[in-house]
Every structure is written in C-alpha cells, then in structure tokens.
C-alpha cells in the first residue's frame, strides 16, 4: 500500500496537468516499507527525455539532489512519479523495460479520463505489482 498525504495527491495531479501534453516526473519522500509506504513530500523534477510527450527521464544530477534533499530531511525515498497524459492507466512496456528501483513505488498520474487517476506499482525486479493507493488528510494518524 502507498499512502499519500492529501497535499501530495493534489500536487501530483496539479503537476501532471501543468505539464500536459508532456509527461511530468518527480520523486516522493516519506517513510518507505516493504508492504506499506507513506509519502508526504513530492519534489518536482525536470523531464529531459528527447520526446517528453511519450517518455520521461530524470537528469541524474537533479535526481541525486532530490534524493539527497529527502534523506537530509530525515525521510526515505519512497518512489517516483510520472504521468501518462493520454494513458494508459498502467505501466507501459517502456516503463517495464527501464525500471531499476526494486521494491520502490512507481506512481503514475493518468489524465485521459473525465477525472485524473493516480495508481501505484511496486517494481519487483521482474514486473510491476499494483498496490493500493490511500489518500490521507493531514489529521489522519500516520
């Protein structure tokens, strides 16, 4: 399960909408666990893919800076976010071919329906396994 704070959930959708038709991307911080993670921090990243409407790629230096900033704040890197402005509502073949962070959450924000969809999948090292996404208000217990 991946728990998102309400502010992170809203921020993910806002970022995806702002960057559409290009894909957005970012890094999530919080508490990472094998079965249950919680994200209450989202750091927007630049998409340096050569065709950002159909692909995403983080700049390695920027990626490292985001990850270090999360760890410097005493948090864990929980996972990574990108958007599919035109679908599909699941990891693409390219996502599967290029995934490298085993055990981390890969969140996808999908904008092709009437309402945005936020899904999350853990990369097992061989395939993506979908996990439940829960949205918590600031008052909810952690």
């Amino acid at each position: 399960m991946l728990e998102l704070s309400r502010s992170v959930y809203d921020e993910l959708i806002a970022h995806a909408r702002e960057r559409a038709p290009e894909e957005c991307c970012g890094v999530l911080g919080g508490r990472q666990g094998a079965d249950r993670s919680r994200a209450d921090r989202h750091r927007r990243a630049s998409n340096i893919a050569s065709d950002p409407e159909t692909a995403y790629e983080l700049d390695p230096e920027e990626q490292l800076a985001h990850m270090q900033a999360i760890e410097d704040a005493g948090q864990d890197v929980v996972g990574f976010v990108h958007s599919h402005p035109a679908g599909p509502p699941r990891p693409s073949r390219t996502d599967e071919r290029q995934a490298t962070w085993t055990g981390y959450s890969y969140v996808i924000v999908v904008l092709d329906g009437a309402e945005p969809f936020v899904g999350s999948w853990r990369w097992t090292g061989e395939r993506f396994q979908q996990e439940t996404v829960a949205i918590q208000s600031a008052e909810s217990p952690t």
């Binding site: 995403y56 790629e57 983080l58 693409s92 290029q98 890969y106």
Partner: peptide, 10 residues
Amino acid sequence: VRVLRLIKGG
C-alpha cells in the same frame, strides 16, 4: 564512485 540507477520510462 556512485552508481545511480536511472529513473525513466514512457
């Protein structure tokens, strides 16, 4: 050296 796994996809 640091080896950084890339974050990319489609």
